[in-house]
Design a protein around this nucleic acid. Structure first.
Lengths: 225, 225
DNA sequence: ACGCGCAAGATTTGATCAAATTATGACGGC
DNA sequence: GCCGTCATAATTTGATCAAATCTTGCGCGT
């Protein structure tokens, strides 16, 4: 039977270090940790109620992904955004994410479209309610549900890394300017998927990136992040 | 006088987990570990004569960088190259490394050129001697000495990750075909640097990438890596 | 007497190791 | 072929040590 192993997978023990990694990763990704904020092993042991080894490993992984930085002091903190960093991130996003959209396009199924629409439906209410966390989670979910369909692990890894580096700053910015009416590029992306138009999908993602980046750039001109 | 404490700092300052990481990283990068080869914590504790914690952390970091893969079994191994993977790596290399060369160009100093020439001088003898390890080390050193001059940490991180994913396969391929006379693109790159021509430098790097990739692609058509 | 700076101790945090626990895969008996 | 047992390896905890930061207070000069 092909699903004999399924309940085993359900019961399978996910290692603590994996869970700890995911929890810490989401804290960075969705702005629970502010730019520049120090991250201590001892603090995470308390906050996440985990052992020392899982916490250390989670920090190492996230450091390798650029989500955290090690100082000479051996201390760890959330990196701040700078104009030079932003330029690099823009370049990478423009190179990788439209490509992911393009690669995903042939694998878009009606089921995926349905799932993306479901995610997208939650976004506008979140904006109106000024619920930044929900907005960030759904926006992230929308993009990566699509990107995962590409089945391109390398590009996906890079995209995840870049989003991790954006997370903290984005949170700060949106907390200030969430009231702004952002025209939703997701609708364009969904329309392109329904039409099976890979080129239009790629373009929609490209515009979505440009829009997000412009916000960060504008905010960065005003204040340090 | 002022650096009386430096020798103590030399030995003590760098944490074991950092050293362990660098050693394991080089083993992947320069093909000491073959594609598909299993990597065990216990084995590394013996081979690298390190404790468990440093080894675990090194593995986690390298896994995050794509240099190693975790299986459902909790086992770790060196990933194999596939055509789909290669396509992604090519796309990223072409997007990132010429950009690094372009950004580095304004910061190229005579001292850097001298260092690059010194590195490059060792390459041809290594090829003639069929010394694959030295060739790989010098080729890597040449590229990253240049890329570091760009001062673009994000792009550099990505480039390092991509090279890590190439390492094991490249070693296998070069062990077979090192006799081939490769026209050296490094000379072109050096000439462009001396002329201060950023565009020519970018082009030289682009061609160097294309050349390396073609080799891998050809080998991949013949056998599994 | 007041304030400044430096140095010794206390405290916090990170690094490393060793031992106990748990999971996985293999071997052998049934 | 299936199930239990055993060996190997990964996971996790706790203890211990080292490094860095913070605090305290003392001495010195003004």
């Amino acid at each position: 039977m092909e699903d004999s192993g399924q309940q085993a997978a359900e019961t399978r023990k996910v290692p603590t270090h994996e869970v700890t990694y995911l929890r810490l990763r989401d804290m960075v990704l969705f702005g629970v940790l502010a730019p520049g904020q120090p991250v201590t092993i001892q603090g995470l042991i308390r906050d996440l109620e985990a052992g020392m080894t899982p916490v250390r490993e989670a920090i190492r992984r996230l450091t390798a992904e650029g989500a955290l930085v090690l100082h000479d002091n051996r201390r760890v903190s959330v990196p701040r955004m700078t104009p030079a960093l932003l330029d690099q991130l823009v370049h990478v996003r423009e190179a990788v994410e439209p490509k992911l959209a393009e690669l995903a396009s042939p694998h878009v199924t009606p089921a995926l479209i349905a799932r993306l629409e479901e995610i997208d439906e939650g976004i506008e209410p979140a904006i109106r309610a000024a619920d930044v966390t929900t907005y960030l989670r759904l926006n992230h979910a929308f993009h990566f549900a699509l990107y995962e369909a590409a089945g391109a692990t390398v590009l996906e890894d890079i995209a995840r890394s870049v989003w991790l580096r954006f997370g903290p700053s984005l949170r700060v910015i949106l907390s200030r300017y969430i009231a702004l009416g952002l025209p939703d590029r997701h609708a364009e992306a969904l329309a392109a998927m329904k039409a099976g138009d890979a080129q239009a999908l790629t373009l929609a993602i490209r515009e979505d990136i440009a829009q997000g980046v412009d916000q960060v750039r504008a905010a960065l001109a005003d204040e340090a992040l």
